[in-house]
Design a binder for these strands. Structure first.
Length: 623
DNA sequence: ATGGGGGTTGTTTCA
DNA sequence: TTGAAACAACCCCCA
Protein backbone atom coordinates (compact mmCIF):
# COMPACT_ATOMS: atom_id res chain seq x y z
CA UNK A 1 0.00 0.00 0.00
CA UNK A 2 1.29 3.42 -0.97
CA UNK A 3 0.84 6.54 1.09
CA UNK A 4 -2.65 8.11 1.14
CA UNK A 5 -3.73 10.42 -1.67
CA UNK A 6 -6.21 12.71 0.03
CA UNK A 7 -8.84 15.16 -1.12
CA UNK A 8 -9.69 17.68 1.60
CA UNK A 9 -13.11 18.97 0.74
CA UNK A 10 -13.76 22.48 2.11
CA UNK A 11 -17.43 23.34 2.52
CA UNK A 12 -18.63 25.41 5.46
CA UNK A 13 -15.21 25.38 7.13
CA UNK A 14 -13.22 27.94 5.16
CA UNK A 15 -10.32 28.11 7.60
CA UNK A 16 -7.08 26.39 8.58
CA UNK A 17 -7.25 26.97 12.36
CA UNK A 18 -9.14 24.63 14.68
CA UNK A 19 -10.19 22.16 12.05
CA UNK A 20 -10.48 18.64 13.47
CA UNK A 21 -11.21 17.34 9.98
CA UNK A 22 -8.13 18.93 8.44
CA UNK A 23 -6.05 17.54 11.28
CA UNK A 24 -7.45 14.09 10.56
CA UNK A 25 -6.60 14.51 6.89
CA UNK A 26 -2.96 15.25 7.70
CA UNK A 27 -2.46 12.62 10.38
CA UNK A 28 -1.73 9.65 8.07
CA UNK A 29 1.04 11.71 6.43
CA UNK A 30 -0.47 11.75 2.94
CA UNK A 31 1.65 11.62 -0.20
CA UNK A 32 -0.53 14.29 -1.78
CA UNK A 33 -3.39 16.47 -0.57
CA UNK A 34 -5.78 18.41 -2.75
CA UNK A 35 -7.63 21.21 -0.95
CA UNK A 36 -10.76 21.61 -3.02
CA UNK A 37 -14.11 23.38 -3.06
CA UNK A 38 -16.95 22.17 -5.24
CA UNK A 39 -19.29 24.75 -6.66
CA UNK A 40 -22.55 23.01 -5.94
CA UNK A 41 -25.59 23.88 -8.12
CA UNK A 42 -27.79 23.44 -5.05
CA UNK A 43 -26.17 26.48 -3.50
CA UNK A 44 -25.85 28.40 -6.73
CA UNK A 45 -29.45 27.98 -7.82
CA UNK A 46 -31.54 26.63 -4.94
CA UNK A 47 -30.25 28.62 -2.00
CA UNK A 48 -31.32 32.22 -1.95
CA UNK A 49 -28.43 34.57 -1.53
CA UNK A 50 -27.98 38.19 -2.40
CA UNK A 51 -24.80 39.53 -3.98
CA UNK A 52 -23.46 40.59 -0.59
CA UNK A 53 -23.27 37.04 0.68
CA UNK A 54 -21.73 35.72 -2.52
CA UNK A 55 -19.01 38.32 -2.22
CA UNK A 56 -18.44 37.37 1.40
CA UNK A 57 -18.05 33.72 0.38
CA UNK A 58 -15.52 34.67 -2.28
CA UNK A 59 -13.63 36.72 0.33
CA UNK A 60 -13.41 33.67 2.56
CA UNK A 61 -12.28 31.44 -0.28
CA UNK A 62 -9.64 33.87 -1.50
CA UNK A 63 -8.22 34.35 1.98
CA UNK A 64 -8.13 30.61 2.60
CA UNK A 65 -6.44 30.00 -0.72
CA UNK A 66 -3.76 32.55 0.12
CA UNK A 67 -3.14 30.90 3.48
CA UNK A 68 -2.85 27.47 1.87
CA UNK A 69 -0.48 28.91 -0.69
CA UNK A 70 1.69 30.34 2.09
CA UNK A 71 2.06 26.90 3.65
CA UNK A 72 2.86 25.29 0.32
CA UNK A 73 3.51 27.44 -2.76
CA UNK A 74 2.42 24.54 -5.00
CA UNK A 75 -0.98 24.44 -3.37
CA UNK A 76 -4.06 26.64 -3.07
CA UNK A 77 -7.82 26.23 -2.83
CA UNK A 78 -8.78 24.44 -6.04
CA UNK A 79 -12.34 25.21 -7.10
CA UNK A 80 -14.20 22.70 -9.27
CA UNK A 81 -17.40 23.69 -10.98
CA UNK A 82 -19.69 20.69 -10.81
CA UNK A 83 -22.12 19.05 -8.40
CA UNK A 84 -20.11 16.87 -5.99
CA UNK A 85 -22.48 13.96 -6.53
CA UNK A 86 -21.47 13.67 -10.19
CA UNK A 87 -17.94 15.05 -9.90
CA UNK A 88 -16.46 12.78 -7.24
CA UNK A 89 -16.86 9.43 -9.03
CA UNK A 90 -14.84 10.88 -11.89
CA UNK A 91 -12.26 12.57 -9.65
CA UNK A 92 -11.65 9.48 -7.56
CA UNK A 93 -10.61 7.60 -10.70
CA UNK A 94 -8.80 10.36 -12.56
CA UNK A 95 -6.72 11.46 -9.59
CA UNK A 96 -6.29 8.03 -8.05
CA UNK A 97 -7.71 9.16 -4.71
CA UNK A 98 -7.56 7.00 -1.55
CA UNK A 99 -9.24 9.28 1.04
CA UNK A 100 -11.91 11.97 1.05
CA UNK A 101 -11.95 14.10 4.21
CA UNK A 102 -14.42 16.79 5.21
CA UNK A 103 -16.07 18.47 8.16
CA UNK A 104 -19.41 16.95 9.11
CA UNK A 105 -22.48 19.04 8.35
CA UNK A 106 -25.93 18.45 9.82
CA UNK A 107 -27.93 20.74 7.50
CA UNK A 108 -30.66 18.75 5.78
CA UNK A 109 -29.39 19.14 2.26
CA UNK A 110 -25.80 18.55 3.38
CA UNK A 111 -26.74 15.32 5.12
CA UNK A 112 -28.48 13.99 2.04
CA UNK A 113 -25.60 15.03 -0.20
CA UNK A 114 -22.95 13.60 2.11
CA UNK A 115 -24.76 10.28 2.33
CA UNK A 116 -24.78 10.11 -1.45
CA UNK A 117 -21.05 10.91 -1.48
CA UNK A 118 -20.40 8.23 1.12
CA UNK A 119 -22.12 5.65 -1.08
CA UNK A 120 -20.15 6.77 -4.10
CA UNK A 121 -16.89 6.58 -2.17
CA UNK A 122 -17.62 3.12 -0.90
CA UNK A 123 -18.21 1.88 -4.44
CA UNK A 124 -14.95 3.47 -5.53
CA UNK A 125 -13.01 2.04 -2.60
CA UNK A 126 -12.27 5.51 -1.25
CA UNK A 127 -12.17 5.95 2.49
CA UNK A 128 -14.28 8.76 3.96
CA UNK A 129 -13.09 10.58 7.07
CA UNK A 130 -15.22 13.20 8.81
CA UNK A 131 -14.97 15.23 12.00
CA UNK A 132 -17.26 17.74 13.62
CA UNK A 133 -16.12 21.32 14.15
CA UNK A 134 -19.00 23.51 13.11
CA UNK A 135 -20.55 23.91 16.54
CA UNK A 136 -19.36 23.60 20.12
CA UNK A 137 -20.65 20.03 20.39
CA UNK A 138 -21.56 17.55 17.67
CA UNK A 139 -25.23 18.31 17.05
CA UNK A 140 -26.15 14.64 16.65
CA UNK A 141 -24.55 13.86 20.00
CA UNK A 142 -26.50 16.70 21.60
CA UNK A 143 -29.71 15.26 20.21
CA UNK A 144 -28.80 11.78 21.47
CA UNK A 145 -28.12 13.14 24.95
CA UNK A 146 -31.41 15.03 24.79
CA UNK A 147 -33.32 11.78 24.45
CA UNK A 148 -33.33 11.88 20.66
CA UNK A 149 -35.43 15.02 20.77
CA UNK A 150 -34.72 18.47 19.37
CA UNK A 151 -33.30 20.99 21.85
CA UNK A 152 -36.18 23.44 22.21
CA UNK A 153 -34.77 25.48 25.08
CA UNK A 154 -31.38 26.69 26.16
CA UNK A 155 -31.51 24.60 29.35
CA UNK A 156 -32.00 21.46 27.29
CA UNK A 157 -28.96 22.33 25.22
CA UNK A 158 -26.89 23.08 28.31
CA UNK A 159 -27.95 19.88 30.05
CA UNK A 160 -27.17 17.80 26.97
CA UNK A 161 -23.85 19.57 26.47
CA UNK A 162 -22.94 18.98 30.08
CA UNK A 163 -23.57 15.25 29.62
CA UNK A 164 -21.30 15.13 26.57
CA UNK A 165 -18.45 16.82 28.38
CA UNK A 166 -16.16 19.77 27.97
CA UNK A 167 -16.17 21.64 24.69
CA UNK A 168 -13.02 20.62 22.78
CA UNK A 169 -10.10 23.04 22.91
CA UNK A 170 -9.18 24.58 19.56
CA UNK A 171 -6.52 22.94 17.41
CA UNK A 172 -3.68 24.98 15.92
CA UNK A 173 -3.52 25.50 12.17
CA UNK A 174 -1.17 23.12 10.34
CA UNK A 175 2.37 24.31 9.73
CA UNK A 176 2.89 22.36 6.54
CA UNK A 177 0.66 21.03 3.79
CA UNK A 178 1.58 18.27 1.34
CA UNK A 179 1.84 19.00 -2.37
CA UNK A 180 -1.28 18.54 -4.43
CA UNK A 181 -1.11 15.65 -6.87
CA UNK A 182 -1.65 15.85 -10.61
CA UNK A 183 -5.11 17.14 -11.51
CA UNK A 184 -6.10 15.80 -14.91
CA UNK A 185 -9.60 16.68 -16.07
CA UNK A 186 -9.93 13.91 -18.63
CA UNK A 187 -13.69 13.64 -18.27
CA UNK A 188 -16.80 15.58 -19.24
CA UNK A 189 -18.69 17.99 -17.04
CA UNK A 190 -22.21 17.06 -16.06
CA UNK A 191 -24.28 20.15 -16.81
CA UNK A 192 -26.04 21.53 -13.72
CA UNK A 193 -29.76 21.69 -13.27
CA UNK A 194 -30.03 25.47 -13.41
CA UNK A 195 -33.81 25.68 -13.02
CA UNK A 196 -35.34 27.02 -10.96
CA UNK A 197 -32.72 29.67 -10.25
CA UNK A 198 -33.79 31.36 -7.03
CA UNK A 199 -31.03 33.92 -7.53
CA UNK A 200 -31.93 34.90 -11.06
CA UNK A 201 -33.02 38.33 -9.87
CA UNK A 202 -29.47 39.15 -8.77
CA UNK A 203 -27.79 38.12 -12.00
CA UNK A 204 -27.33 41.27 -14.02
CA UNK A 205 -25.07 39.51 -16.51
CA UNK A 206 -24.67 36.07 -18.07
CA UNK A 207 -24.16 33.22 -15.66
CA UNK A 208 -20.84 31.62 -16.66
CA UNK A 209 -20.46 29.56 -13.51
CA UNK A 210 -20.49 26.19 -15.21
CA UNK A 211 -18.75 26.99 -18.48
CA UNK A 212 -15.95 24.59 -17.51
CA UNK A 213 -14.94 22.44 -14.56
CA UNK A 214 -11.64 24.20 -13.85
CA UNK A 215 -12.72 27.76 -14.60
CA UNK A 216 -12.08 30.15 -17.49
CA UNK A 217 -8.28 29.67 -17.40
CA UNK A 218 -8.38 26.00 -16.51
CA UNK A 219 -6.45 26.68 -13.31
CA UNK A 220 -9.20 25.89 -10.75
CA UNK A 221 -9.25 29.54 -9.77
CA UNK A 222 -11.79 30.92 -7.33
CA UNK A 223 -14.82 32.35 -9.10
CA UNK A 224 -15.44 36.04 -9.46
CA UNK A 225 -18.76 37.85 -9.15
CA UNK A 226 -18.35 38.48 -12.88
CA UNK A 227 -18.19 34.74 -13.59
CA UNK A 228 -21.31 34.16 -11.49
CA UNK A 229 -23.09 36.93 -13.36
CA UNK A 230 -23.63 39.07 -10.30
CA UNK A 231 -23.38 42.84 -10.16
CA UNK A 232 -21.30 44.56 -7.47
CA UNK A 233 -21.99 44.01 -3.79
CA UNK A 234 -22.99 46.87 -1.48
CA UNK A 235 -21.90 45.62 1.94
CA UNK A 236 -18.93 47.13 3.74
CA UNK A 237 -18.43 43.88 5.68
CA UNK A 238 -15.73 41.61 4.33
CA UNK A 239 -14.96 37.97 4.94
CA UNK A 240 -11.94 35.74 5.40
CA UNK A 241 -10.15 33.84 8.15
CA UNK A 242 -7.37 36.41 8.49
CA UNK A 243 -9.84 39.21 9.12
CA UNK A 244 -11.83 37.02 11.50
CA UNK A 245 -8.77 36.37 13.64
CA UNK A 246 -7.91 40.04 13.71
CA UNK A 247 -11.43 40.98 14.77
CA UNK A 248 -11.53 38.31 17.43
CA UNK A 249 -8.19 39.57 18.80
CA UNK A 250 -9.63 43.10 19.03
CA UNK A 251 -12.73 41.89 20.82
CA UNK A 252 -10.79 39.86 23.37
CA UNK A 253 -8.32 42.71 23.87
CA UNK A 254 -11.21 44.83 25.12
CA UNK A 255 -11.51 42.68 28.23
CA UNK A 256 -14.35 44.54 29.85
CA UNK A 257 -16.45 44.40 26.70
CA UNK A 258 -15.85 40.71 26.06
CA UNK A 259 -16.13 39.53 29.67
CA UNK A 260 -19.19 41.53 30.71
CA UNK A 261 -21.09 41.33 27.42
CA UNK A 262 -24.87 41.16 27.91
CA UNK A 263 -26.71 40.75 24.66
CA UNK A 264 -30.05 42.25 25.72
CA UNK A 265 -28.22 45.37 26.82
CA UNK A 266 -26.49 45.99 23.49
CA UNK A 267 -28.10 48.61 21.32
CA UNK A 268 -29.79 47.69 18.04
CA UNK A 269 -29.50 51.32 17.01
CA UNK A 270 -25.72 51.49 17.25
CA UNK A 271 -23.82 51.69 14.00
CA UNK A 272 -20.24 52.78 13.40
CA UNK A 273 -19.40 50.94 15.50
CA UNK A 274 -22.09 48.33 16.02
CA UNK A 275 -22.70 47.16 19.57
CA UNK A 276 -22.17 43.43 18.91
CA UNK A 277 -19.17 41.58 17.50
CA UNK A 278 -20.24 41.04 13.88
CA UNK A 279 -18.47 37.70 13.98
CA UNK A 280 -21.55 35.71 12.92
CA UNK A 281 -20.83 35.87 9.16
CA UNK A 282 -17.37 34.43 9.80
CA UNK A 283 -18.95 31.64 11.82
CA UNK A 284 -21.38 30.94 9.02
CA UNK A 285 -18.66 30.36 6.45
CA UNK A 286 -16.41 28.62 8.94
CA UNK A 287 -13.79 31.36 8.66
CA UNK A 288 -13.93 31.45 12.45
CA UNK A 289 -14.19 28.36 14.61
CA UNK A 290 -16.91 28.60 17.26
CA UNK A 291 -14.70 26.64 19.66
CA UNK A 292 -11.82 29.05 19.26
CA UNK A 293 -14.24 31.92 19.88
CA UNK A 294 -15.68 30.11 22.89
CA UNK A 295 -12.35 29.38 24.56
CA UNK A 296 -10.85 32.79 23.87
CA UNK A 297 -13.83 34.28 25.72
CA UNK A 298 -14.04 31.60 28.39
CA UNK A 299 -10.37 31.84 29.33
CA UNK A 300 -10.81 35.56 29.79
CA UNK A 301 -14.05 35.14 31.74
CA UNK A 302 -12.49 32.64 34.18
CA UNK A 303 -9.97 35.20 35.38
CA UNK A 304 -12.19 38.28 35.12
CA UNK A 305 -14.05 39.55 38.17
CA UNK A 306 -17.71 40.33 37.55
CA UNK A 307 -18.02 38.61 34.18
CA UNK A 308 -21.42 37.95 32.64
CA UNK A 309 -22.67 34.42 32.15
CA UNK A 310 -24.86 32.48 29.71
CA UNK A 311 -27.30 32.96 28.19
CA UNK A 312 -26.63 36.70 27.97
CA UNK A 313 -22.85 36.49 27.68
CA UNK A 314 -20.82 36.05 24.50
CA UNK A 315 -20.47 32.32 25.11
CA UNK A 316 -24.22 32.21 25.64
CA UNK A 317 -24.70 33.42 22.10
CA UNK A 318 -22.72 30.43 20.88
CA UNK A 319 -24.90 28.16 23.01
CA UNK A 320 -28.01 29.48 21.29
CA UNK A 321 -26.38 28.74 17.96
CA UNK A 322 -25.77 25.16 19.10
CA UNK A 323 -29.36 24.92 20.31
CA UNK A 324 -30.73 25.81 16.88
CA UNK A 325 -28.29 23.51 15.10
CA UNK A 326 -29.25 20.57 17.30
CA UNK A 327 -32.98 21.31 16.96
CA UNK A 328 -32.59 21.40 13.18
CA UNK A 329 -30.46 18.24 13.24
CA UNK A 330 -33.21 16.38 15.09
CA UNK A 331 -36.21 17.67 13.15
CA UNK A 332 -34.61 17.57 9.69
CA UNK A 333 -35.92 19.39 6.60
CA UNK A 334 -39.23 20.22 8.31
CA UNK A 335 -37.39 22.49 10.73
CA UNK A 336 -37.34 25.38 8.26
CA UNK A 337 -41.07 25.25 7.67
CA UNK A 338 -44.41 24.76 9.40
CA UNK A 339 -45.70 21.92 7.29
CA UNK A 340 -44.87 18.48 8.73
CA UNK A 341 -43.08 20.04 11.68
CA UNK A 342 -44.54 18.61 14.92
CA UNK A 343 -42.63 21.10 17.06
CA UNK A 344 -44.13 24.21 15.58
CA UNK A 345 -47.45 25.82 16.33
CA UNK A 346 -49.90 26.35 13.51
CA UNK A 347 -51.07 29.95 13.26
CA UNK A 348 -53.35 30.88 10.35
CA UNK A 349 -51.08 33.65 9.11
CA UNK A 350 -51.71 35.36 5.83
CA UNK A 351 -49.49 34.57 2.83
CA UNK A 352 -48.79 30.93 3.72
CA UNK A 353 -46.24 28.94 1.71
CA UNK A 354 -47.31 26.66 -1.08
CA UNK A 355 -46.76 23.03 -0.26
CA UNK A 356 -43.58 22.15 -2.12
CA UNK A 357 -42.69 18.95 -0.34
CA UNK A 358 -41.52 16.48 -2.92
CA UNK A 359 -40.25 19.12 -5.30
CA UNK A 360 -36.59 19.93 -5.66
CA UNK A 361 -36.84 23.30 -3.95
CA UNK A 362 -38.86 21.68 -1.18
CA UNK A 363 -35.76 20.16 0.30
CA UNK A 364 -34.70 22.45 3.09
CA UNK A 365 -35.47 25.58 1.16
CA UNK A 366 -38.27 28.07 1.19
CA UNK A 367 -38.55 28.98 -2.45
CA UNK A 368 -40.73 31.99 -1.78
CA UNK A 369 -43.82 30.56 -3.51
CA UNK A 370 -46.87 31.43 -1.44
CA UNK A 371 -50.62 31.90 -1.54
CA UNK A 372 -51.77 35.50 -1.76
CA UNK A 373 -54.85 34.97 0.39
CA UNK A 374 -55.12 38.64 1.26
CA UNK A 375 -54.35 41.57 -1.01
CA UNK A 376 -53.98 43.75 2.07
CA UNK A 377 -51.38 41.48 3.67
CA UNK A 378 -49.53 41.18 0.38
CA UNK A 379 -49.37 44.96 0.11
CA UNK A 380 -48.03 45.24 3.66
CA UNK A 381 -45.48 42.51 2.96
CA UNK A 382 -44.22 44.25 -0.17
CA UNK A 383 -43.79 47.49 1.77
CA UNK A 384 -42.02 45.73 4.65
CA UNK A 385 -39.70 43.97 2.26
CA UNK A 386 -38.20 47.11 0.81
CA UNK A 387 -38.44 49.35 3.84
CA UNK A 388 -41.31 51.70 3.03
CA UNK A 389 -43.80 50.79 5.76
CA UNK A 390 -44.10 54.36 6.94
CA UNK A 391 -42.65 53.35 10.31
CA UNK A 392 -39.16 54.92 10.27
CA UNK A 393 -37.60 52.50 12.78
CA UNK A 394 -38.74 49.51 10.72
CA UNK A 395 -37.73 51.07 7.42
CA UNK A 396 -34.30 52.11 8.69
CA UNK A 397 -33.56 48.57 9.80
CA UNK A 398 -34.77 47.04 6.57
CA UNK A 399 -32.76 49.43 4.46
CA UNK A 400 -29.63 48.82 6.53
CA UNK A 401 -30.17 45.08 6.09
CA UNK A 402 -30.63 45.38 2.34
CA UNK A 403 -27.48 47.40 1.86
CA UNK A 404 -25.12 45.93 4.44
CA UNK A 405 -26.38 42.39 4.93
CA UNK A 406 -26.26 42.73 8.69
CA UNK A 407 -28.39 44.32 11.39
CA UNK A 408 -28.33 43.91 15.16
CA UNK A 409 -30.15 40.95 16.60
CA UNK A 410 -32.77 43.12 18.30
CA UNK A 411 -33.29 44.96 15.02
CA UNK A 412 -34.12 41.58 13.51
CA UNK A 413 -36.57 41.10 16.37
CA UNK A 414 -38.27 44.38 15.55
CA UNK A 415 -38.63 43.50 11.88
CA UNK A 416 -39.79 39.96 12.57
CA UNK A 417 -42.33 40.83 15.23
CA UNK A 418 -43.73 43.62 13.08
CA UNK A 419 -44.22 41.36 10.05
CA UNK A 420 -45.79 38.51 11.98
CA UNK A 421 -47.59 38.59 15.31
CA UNK A 422 -47.05 42.28 16.03
CA UNK A 423 -48.47 44.05 13.00
CA UNK A 424 -48.95 42.48 9.58
CA UNK A 425 -49.96 38.97 10.64
CA UNK A 426 -47.99 37.60 7.70
CA UNK A 427 -46.50 34.10 7.82
CA UNK A 428 -43.02 33.97 9.35
CA UNK A 429 -41.81 31.93 6.40
CA UNK A 430 -42.20 35.02 4.20
CA UNK A 431 -39.87 36.92 6.50
CA UNK A 432 -37.42 34.05 6.84
CA UNK A 433 -37.29 33.89 3.07
CA UNK A 434 -36.32 37.57 2.83
CA UNK A 435 -33.71 37.22 5.58
CA UNK A 436 -32.27 34.16 3.88
CA UNK A 437 -31.58 36.29 0.86
CA UNK A 438 -30.24 39.33 2.67
CA UNK A 439 -28.25 38.16 5.69
CA UNK A 440 -24.50 37.69 5.38
CA UNK A 441 -24.65 35.36 8.36
CA UNK A 442 -27.69 33.45 7.16
CA UNK A 443 -27.69 30.03 8.78
CA UNK A 444 -30.73 27.91 7.89
CA UNK A 445 -31.10 26.58 11.43
CA UNK A 446 -30.60 29.91 13.20
CA UNK A 447 -32.73 31.89 10.78
CA UNK A 448 -35.69 29.51 10.94
CA UNK A 449 -35.27 29.12 14.70
CA UNK A 450 -35.22 32.83 15.35
CA UNK A 451 -38.28 33.43 13.16
CA UNK A 452 -40.08 30.72 15.09
CA UNK A 453 -39.01 32.37 18.32
CA UNK A 454 -40.16 35.83 17.30
CA UNK A 455 -43.43 34.66 15.77
CA UNK A 456 -44.14 32.64 18.93
CA UNK A 457 -44.60 29.44 16.96
CA UNK A 458 -41.77 27.60 18.77
CA UNK A 459 -39.08 28.32 21.40
CA UNK A 460 -40.97 31.35 22.73
CA UNK A 461 -44.62 31.90 23.51
CA UNK A 462 -45.21 35.23 25.22
CA UNK A 463 -47.02 36.73 22.28
CA UNK A 464 -48.34 39.61 24.31
CA UNK A 465 -44.80 40.96 24.54
CA UNK A 466 -44.92 42.93 21.40
CA UNK A 467 -42.20 45.19 20.00
CA UNK A 468 -43.49 48.67 19.30
CA UNK A 469 -42.06 50.15 16.09
CA UNK A 470 -41.94 53.47 17.93
CA UNK A 471 -41.01 53.13 21.57
CA UNK A 472 -38.61 50.20 21.26
CA UNK A 473 -36.25 52.16 19.04
CA UNK A 474 -36.63 55.26 21.18
CA UNK A 475 -35.45 53.34 24.21
CA UNK A 476 -32.04 52.98 22.56
CA UNK A 477 -31.79 55.95 20.29
CA UNK A 478 -33.84 58.94 21.39
CA UNK A 479 -32.55 61.26 18.70
CA UNK A 480 -33.19 58.77 15.89
CA UNK A 481 -29.61 58.55 14.61
CA UNK A 482 -30.22 55.20 12.96
CA UNK A 483 -33.28 56.58 11.21
CA UNK A 484 -31.44 59.67 10.02
CA UNK A 485 -28.68 57.48 8.64
CA UNK A 486 -30.92 55.05 6.75
CA UNK A 487 -34.04 57.07 6.06
CA UNK A 488 -32.50 60.31 4.79
CA UNK A 489 -35.94 61.65 3.90
CA UNK A 490 -36.38 62.27 7.63
CA UNK A 491 -32.87 63.35 8.54
CA UNK A 492 -33.87 66.91 9.40
CA UNK A 493 -37.09 66.10 11.20
CA UNK A 494 -37.41 67.12 14.82
CA UNK A 495 -36.53 64.47 17.39
CA UNK A 496 -40.11 64.59 18.67
CA UNK A 497 -41.46 63.18 15.41
CA UNK A 498 -38.65 61.20 13.85
CA UNK A 499 -40.16 57.88 15.02
CA UNK A 500 -43.70 58.88 14.09
CA UNK A 501 -43.59 61.52 11.36
CA UNK A 502 -47.33 61.22 10.71
CA UNK A 503 -47.83 63.10 13.95
CA UNK A 504 -45.73 66.05 12.88
CA UNK A 505 -47.40 69.32 11.99
CA UNK A 506 -47.27 70.67 8.44
CA UNK A 507 -44.88 73.28 9.72
CA UNK A 508 -42.48 70.80 11.26
CA UNK A 509 -42.54 68.67 8.12
CA UNK A 510 -42.01 71.70 5.94
CA UNK A 511 -39.03 72.75 7.97
CA UNK A 512 -37.56 69.27 7.51
CA UNK A 513 -38.32 69.34 3.81
CA UNK A 514 -40.45 66.22 3.76
CA UNK A 515 -44.04 65.35 2.93
CA UNK A 516 -45.86 62.28 4.20
CA UNK A 517 -47.63 60.68 1.25
CA UNK A 518 -48.19 57.49 -0.69
CA UNK A 519 -47.28 53.88 0.00
CA UNK A 520 -43.64 54.22 -1.00
CA UNK A 521 -43.84 51.52 -3.66
CA UNK A 522 -42.88 52.23 -7.25
CA UNK A 523 -41.38 55.59 -8.17
CA UNK A 524 -41.29 57.65 -5.01
CA UNK A 525 -41.43 61.41 -5.24
CA UNK A 526 -38.35 63.17 -3.92
CA UNK A 527 -38.86 64.77 -0.54
CA UNK A 528 -41.61 62.37 0.50
CA UNK A 529 -41.85 59.62 3.06
CA UNK A 530 -44.72 57.10 3.00
CA UNK A 531 -47.77 57.14 5.22
CA UNK A 532 -47.84 54.51 7.97
CA UNK A 533 -49.37 51.23 6.74
CA UNK A 534 -51.78 51.03 9.64
CA UNK A 535 -52.54 52.12 13.16
CA UNK A 536 -50.06 50.05 15.12
CA UNK A 537 -52.03 50.02 18.35
CA UNK A 538 -55.07 48.66 16.55
CA UNK A 539 -53.09 46.01 14.71
CA UNK A 540 -51.38 44.97 17.91
CA UNK A 541 -54.73 44.30 19.57
CA UNK A 542 -56.02 42.35 16.59
CA UNK A 543 -52.89 40.25 16.29
CA UNK A 544 -52.74 39.38 19.97
CA UNK A 545 -56.37 38.30 19.92
CA UNK A 546 -55.68 36.15 16.88
CA UNK A 547 -52.63 34.60 18.52
CA UNK A 548 -54.65 33.80 21.59
CA UNK A 549 -57.23 32.07 19.47
CA UNK A 550 -54.60 30.07 17.59
CA UNK A 551 -52.97 29.01 20.86
CA UNK A 552 -56.33 27.81 22.14
CA UNK A 553 -56.94 25.80 18.98
CA UNK A 554 -53.50 24.35 19.53
CA UNK A 555 -52.66 22.79 16.18
CA UNK A 556 -49.11 21.92 15.19
CA UNK A 557 -47.43 21.77 11.81
CA UNK A 558 -47.76 18.02 11.42
CA UNK A 559 -51.50 17.93 12.12
CA UNK A 560 -53.60 16.33 9.39
CA UNK A 561 -56.06 19.19 9.68
CA UNK A 562 -53.29 21.63 8.83
CA UNK A 563 -52.48 19.68 5.68
CA UNK A 564 -56.01 19.04 4.47
CA UNK A 565 -57.41 22.49 5.21
CA UNK A 566 -60.04 21.41 7.77
CA UNK A 567 -58.25 23.57 10.35
CA UNK A 568 -60.52 26.35 9.10
CA UNK A 569 -63.47 24.81 10.90
CA UNK A 570 -61.69 25.26 14.21
CA UNK A 571 -61.29 28.97 13.65
CA UNK A 572 -64.85 29.65 12.54
CA UNK A 573 -66.07 31.00 15.86
CA UNK A 574 -63.68 33.90 15.66
CA UNK A 575 -65.21 37.07 16.96
CA UNK A 576 -65.41 39.98 14.57
CA UNK A 577 -62.18 41.60 15.66
CA UNK A 578 -60.20 38.52 14.85
CA UNK A 579 -61.94 38.18 11.53
CA UNK A 580 -60.32 41.40 10.53
CA UNK A 581 -57.04 39.54 10.49
CA UNK A 582 -57.89 36.35 8.73
CA UNK A 583 -58.69 37.52 5.27
CA UNK A 584 -59.29 34.68 2.86
CA UNK A 585 -62.86 34.49 4.20
CA UNK A 586 -65.32 35.65 1.57
CA UNK A 587 -68.30 37.83 2.16
CA UNK A 588 -70.70 34.91 2.08
CA UNK A 589 -69.20 33.63 5.30
CA UNK A 590 -69.31 36.99 6.98
CA UNK A 591 -72.89 36.46 8.06
CA UNK A 592 -72.06 33.22 9.80
CA UNK A 593 -69.21 34.84 11.61
CA UNK A 594 -71.45 37.65 12.69
CA UNK A 595 -74.01 35.16 13.91
CA UNK A 596 -71.44 33.21 15.90
CA UNK A 597 -70.23 36.36 17.49
CA UNK A 598 -73.62 37.31 18.82
CA UNK A 599 -74.33 34.10 20.60
CA UNK A 600 -70.77 33.18 21.51
CA UNK A 601 -69.30 36.22 23.12
CA UNK A 602 -68.85 36.36 26.84
CA UNK A 603 -69.73 32.85 27.84
CA UNK A 604 -67.21 31.16 25.61
CA UNK A 605 -64.36 33.33 26.77
CA UNK A 606 -64.70 32.02 30.27
CA UNK A 607 -65.57 28.40 29.61
CA UNK A 608 -63.86 27.32 26.44
CA UNK A 609 -60.41 28.47 27.42
CA UNK A 610 -59.45 25.87 29.99
CA UNK A 611 -61.05 23.06 27.98
CA UNK A 612 -58.99 23.96 24.94
CA UNK A 613 -55.86 24.16 26.98
CA UNK A 614 -56.52 20.69 28.26
CA UNK A 615 -56.86 19.51 24.69
CA UNK A 616 -53.52 21.01 23.78
CA UNK A 617 -51.77 19.24 26.62
CA UNK A 618 -53.28 15.92 25.71
CA UNK A 619 -52.21 16.22 22.10
CA UNK A 620 -48.70 17.06 23.08
CA UNK A 621 -48.11 14.09 25.32
CA UNK A 622 -49.41 11.82 22.59
CA UNK A 623 -47.00 13.13 19.96
C1' DA B 1 -47.00 14.67 39.73
C1' DT B 2 -48.54 19.36 40.34
C1' DG B 3 -47.62 23.95 41.46
C1' DG B 4 -44.70 27.69 41.64
C1' DG B 5 -40.81 30.11 39.71
C1' DG B 6 -38.63 31.64 35.77
C1' DG B 7 -38.00 33.04 30.94
C1' DT B 8 -31.09 36.68 27.24
C1' DT B 9 -33.84 41.02 24.29
C1' DG B 10 -42.24 44.43 25.99
C1' DT B 11 -44.84 48.45 27.54
C1' DT B 12 -46.61 51.56 30.69
C1' DT B 13 -46.81 53.68 34.99
C1' DC B 14 -45.23 55.27 39.10
C1' DA B 15 -41.86 56.21 42.76
C1' DT C 1 -33.34 59.99 34.97
C1' DT C 2 -33.41 55.24 36.51
C1' DG C 3 -35.57 51.26 38.45
C1' DA C 4 -39.26 48.48 40.02
C1' DA C 5 -43.85 46.86 39.65
C1' DA C 6 -48.15 45.93 37.20
C1' DC C 7 -49.99 43.90 33.34
C1' DA C 8 -51.33 38.66 34.04
C1' DA C 9 -52.88 36.59 27.47
C1' DC C 10 -47.85 31.91 27.37
C1' DC C 11 -44.89 27.51 28.14
C1' DC C 12 -40.73 25.21 30.29
C1' DC C 13 -38.47 23.40 34.18
C1' DC C 14 -37.67 21.53 38.52
C1' DA C 15 -38.65 19.99 43.00
Amino acid sequence: MGKPRVIYWFRTDLRLHDSPALKAALEPDPAVLWPIFTWDPHYVYRTKGGVNRWQYLLDCQNDLSKSINKLNPKSKLFVLREAPQTLFPKLFKAWNVTHLVFEKDTDSYARERDQAIADIAQKAGVEIVTRYGRTLWDSDEVVAKNGGKPTMSITQLQTAGHKIGEIPRPIAAPEHLPDPGEMPVNFDQEPPNAQPDLNAAHRGKDDKTYNSIAGPKGDFAIETLEELGFVAATTPHRGGETLAQKKLDCIIADEKYAATFQKPKTSPAAFEPQSTTLLSPFLHFGALSPRLFYWRVQDLVSRYKGASSPPESLTGQLLFRDMYFAAAAAIGPAFTQTLNNPYIRFIPWNLPSKDESGTEVGINAISGEYHVDSAQAEHWFQRWKVGVTGFPWIDALMRQLREEGWIHHLGRHSLACFLTRGGCYVHWERGADVFEELLLDHEPACNAGNWQWLSCTAFFSQYYRCYSPVVFGQKWDKSGALIRRWVPELKDLDEKFVYEPWKASKGALGKAGVKIEGDGLGERKKGTYPEPMFDFGERREICIAAMKKAYQVGLHGDDERVKNGTWRELFEDDDSEVQGVGVGHDDEHADDAEHETHKGKGKREAKQGPMDRHLVKKQKTES
